[in-house]
Simulated assay, not measured.
Amino acid sequence: MDPDDKSVTIEWFGTTTYRLKAKGLVIWLDTYLERPSVLPKYLDVDTVDEADYIFISHAHFDHLPGADRIAKKTGAIVIANGEAINLLREAGVPEEQLVPVAGGERIPLFLRADRDRATAGEIEVAPGPPGAPPRPHDRFAAFAVHVWPSLHCFMPGPPGHPPETIDTLTEYTGEASPYTCTLDITTGMKWGLQRLGEIVPEELRDPGILSMIDYMNDRERHLFSHFDGGQLAFNFLIGTGQTLLWSAHMGAYEGVFRKMEPKPDVAILALAGRANLDGRPYDGSAADFIVKQIGWLGEPKIVTWCLHDQSAVRPWSVDTSGADEMVHSKTASRVKHLDFAVPTEIL
């Protein structure tokens, strides 16, 4: 990619997976390209031969798979939480490509040519302990990213009975127990989704469930954990008037998002499930929560959704129209819908 190209483009490949191209860098946001067979596949993960960095929002089955294969093929640096990093290490991704984060980090991003020059000792490198992989001095950074702690959403509806389609205007209130938290998501992943072949009778296995059983059982190709490892959001500081936030689940710590600086010009926000505010189920609709979130972020000029497209199991999709209308009526932000696998100049 040409480092002199001033455009910033993004391609959406479904769920929360994007390819961002900016200032000579090719960056993957999640890598869920190979999906259950009933879902459309927009790009073959094994054909990806260009990546400088991979950012992983969390370690679940619809976010992390593919990161190991892309990283080993391209030499990309992977920035992710400790759970995802441990899985990638076990899968054979070289240690010098792995950067564990937990939120609060500020990370300079470098062109591949400058990384290679630093390794060869041809340019000034950043201070570091003896034996650490050399990286270019900060003054060579193409741009930077700020990492922030975030939260995974909750499932909508009564436990075990999610709706077929999520309406973003549906209001949810109350808690299943005084201890409702994302530990319930972890339990549901381990003892629910990962055991569909054991717990769903054969006569109830529709094509979506069958495809999920096959996908979850193929642990050789699909790297993931039942534990998200700690949800993360990433704010990319590309240039003046070019800050892009990617938050891949509908949850947030209000204080973190409210105090985040710089405020994003564009925000990619997840719109699915029941919102998670400060670790507790949000009382209200997804649309209500999204409007609050947009307000905390200073009303970015453009907002685009993720996680709302097709799923192999219920909920099968999200009706975003209510959230679209509420955002347009209550904020200065404008919603932009992306087409699949089409490079879009977003900034």
Rank of each mutant, 00 (worst) to 15 (best):
R205F: 04
R205C: 04
R205K: 14
R205G: 03
P207D: 12
P207R: 11
L210E: 15
L210M: 13
L210D: 10
S211P: 08
M212L: 13
I213F: 06
D214A: 15
Y215W: 06
Y215C: 03
M216D: 01
E220S: 13
R221E: 07
R221I: 04
L223A: 07
F224Y: 15
S225M: 08
G230N: 07
Q231F: 08
Q231Y: 06
L232P: 03
L232N: 04
F236R: 00
F236E: 00
L237Q: 13
L237W: 01
I238N: 00
G239S: 12
T243M: 01
W246E: 04
S247K: 09
S247H: 02
S247F: 00
A248G: 13
A248D: 06
H249Y: 02
H249V: 00
G251A: 10
A252T: 04
E254T: 14
F257V: 07
F257A: 09
F257R: 10
R258G: 02
R258I: 03
R258K: 15
K263D: 11
P264C: 06
P264R: 00
P264G: 08
D265Q: 11
D265T: 13
V266D: 01
I268K: 02
L269D: 03
L269S: 09
A270H: 05
A270M: 08
L271Q: 12
G273T: 10
R274S: 06
N276L: 11
N276S: 13
D278M: 11
D278Q: 12
D278C: 13
D278W: 05
G279M: 09
G279W: 04
R280M: 09
R280T: 13
